[in-house]
């Protein structure tokens, strides 16, 4: 290779190129972290000067008022996604990690199911929302309501949970399994008491990230959940439900200042909720890593 050359001129050129490369790398880090901090600060700066705590305790009047209905609505949606997508996603992850191994003839079907899950994870969310509107809200006469929103959001985040579960289970040390088998545990009992137990932190992390995605979504909710200024009700269908992203999306370009404040407040609350979820997941990862290292 001609990379190493005794020529002094080449050496100088290489030194310059090295310096350019290093500064470009640092500059690109600044280009990522800078706008991200700017964005967070901007939301805080716009929301905090007009912040009233009664935003949390009064319902919205559209372009003014509080956000209690939206906060509770977002929490209800996240809880529903936790139940539906959590169950399906974790079970699907168990299937991919444990049961769809190349042994047996299950290889082909495993590949099909896995490909479908991966394709779904890259599927445009608005198209899912459109189908939810056409098939569930209109087709099944459910109207704008909680259930179609939950089903569509769950379909959206199941791949993330399945993938996190799969990789968490694959990271369980082999000697745990061997120990369990040596003790004569049945495969099902071993899965529940040994494998799932050690994979739990990874699974919880995946679920928390999926919840933060679900809570921050707008497009698939607009035409499935509808919107209401009332507090969430107990009914799964026929009753629309409010959520935070709606108010960010509709109120920022309304003519009044009150509407702008609603939009900024909703953005701030969303940001805080998402940050809490993501930081919690990060803490879980850090703690289990320390635990694992201590064991070794």
């Amino acid at each position: 290779m001609s990379i190493i050359s005794p020529s002094m001129q080449r050496t100088r050129a290489r030194r310059v190129r090295e310096m350019l490369f290093r500064s470009a790398a640092m500059a690109s880090l600044v280009f990522v972290v800078g706008p991200a901090m700017w964005l967070v600060i901007e939301v805080v700066v716009r929301a905090v000067p007009h912040w009233h705590w009664n935003v949390l305790t009064t319902v919205s009047q559209g372009t003014s008022g509080g956000l209690e209905n939206a906060i509770l609505g977002t929490l209800v949606i996240m809880f529903g996604v936790l139940i539906i997508a959590g169950t399906i996603g974790i079970l699907a992850g168990i299937h991919f990690a444990e049961l769809a191994r190349p042994r047996r003839s299950g290889k082909a079907s495993g590949a099909v199911l896995r490909t479908a899950t991966e394709v779904l994870s890259g599927f445009p969310s608005i198209v899912l929302g459109y189908v939810g509107y056409i098939a569930l809200c209109v087709g099944l006469h459910w109207g704008f309501s909680l259930l179609p929103a939950l089903l569509i959001l769950s379909l959206m985040v199941v791949p993330y949970i399945a993938k996190a579960t799969e990789s968490a289970i694959r990271q369980v040390p082999t000697n745990y399994r061997e120990g369990a088998e040596a003790l004569g545990m049945s495969p099902g009992y071993m899965l529940r008491r040994i494998v799932l137990k050690s994979a739990l932190p990874g699974i919880v992390t995946g679920v928390l990230i999926a919840l933060s995605i679900a809570g921050g979504e707008t497009a698939p909710l607009l035409y499935t959940a509808g919107i209401t200024n009332n507090l969430p009700s107990a009914s799964l269908i026929h009753q629309p439900i409010g959520y935070l992203t709606y108010y960010v999306w509709t109120d920022y370009n309304q003519p009044t200042n009150e509407a702008h404040y609603v939009s900024y407040d909703a953005a701030l609350i969303l940001l805080v909720m998402v940050l809490v979820l993501l930081v919690t997941s990060r803490i879980i990862v850090a703690r289990t890593q320390r635990h694992a290292e201590g064991n070794r």
Binding site: V32, A36, V40, V43, G216, W249, Y264, L270, V274
Partner: peptide, 19 residues
């Protein structure tokens, strides 16, 4: 921090982008 950026709701990024 870079990972967290992936979790910021797109509507909040859009709000910053447009305003």
């Amino acid at each position: 921090f870079v990972e967290i950026l992936a979790g910021i709701p797109s509507v909040v990024i859009g709000l910053w982008g447009v305003l």
